[in-house]
Computed example of a mutant assay.
Amino acid sequence: MTQAIRTQGIILEISDASGTGTYSKVAEVTGFDGPNGSTNVIDATSLDSQFAEKIGGLRDSGQVSVDLNFVPGDTSQQAVRDAYGDAEKRDFRITLTDVDQTTIEFSALVTEFSISASADDKVTASTTLEITGGLTWGNASAG
C-alpha cells in the first residue's frame, strides 16, 4: 500500500519579526518547490592521481519558491512582503500532512516577492526564500 503524502493541508508558516518564536500560517499558498540544497564539490586531484579526485565542501540548503493567491490585506502575506522589504532573515516552517506531521524549519531571506495577473484569471504572487544555514527536520505530532 502506498504511503504517498497528500499536498492538501500542507502549511507554510513565517515567524514574527521580533524573534519570539511565534509563527503565522501564510495564507493562500497554492504550491511550493524546495528546499533544493546542494553540496559544493572541491577538486582534490593531485599530480599523483590516476583519476579526478573530489571531496565535499560546504552545503547550501538552497531556496524555497512559493506560489500564492495574492491577498493584499492579509497580515501573513504582508509579513512576507515586510521580510522582503527589510532584508532581514525570518524563520519559516513547513508542516507536511503525513501521520507524523513532518516539519522542515529554516531561516531565510525573502529575496523576491512579485505579483502577476492576466485576463480572466486571479491575481497571483510568487516569492523566493533564500535559506541561510541548515534545515531542521522534525515532526509536529511529537510536541
Rank of each mutant, 00 (worst) to 15 (best):
D16N: 15
A79D: 09
G21I: 10
F51I: 09
N139Q: 14
Q50V: 08
Q63C: 00
T132W: 01
S18M: 07
K54G: 01
I55Q: 11
A117D: 07
D86F: 07
T39G: 01
G143L: 15
S49A: 14
D67Q: 12
D100Y: 12
G73V: 10
N69G: 02
D98I: 13
R59K: 13
D67T: 08
A83M: 06
E13L: 05
A52H: 11
L68Y: 13
N40V: 14
I14L: 07
S18T: 12
T45F: 12
D91P: 04
G134C: 01
F32Y: 13
L109E: 00
T75R: 09
N36G: 12
I55R: 15
V29P: 02
K122M: 07
S49W: 10
A142K: 11
D16W: 05
S49V: 10
D67V: 06
I94Q: 01
I115P: 04
L58Y: 03
S15P: 02
T97I: 06
S49K: 10
L47N: 13
E112W: 04
G31N: 05
D67M: 06
G73K: 15
A140W: 15
G134P: 04
T111V: 06
V66I: 13
Q3G: 09
D120E: 15
N139M: 11
I5T: 06
F106R: 04
A117T: 13
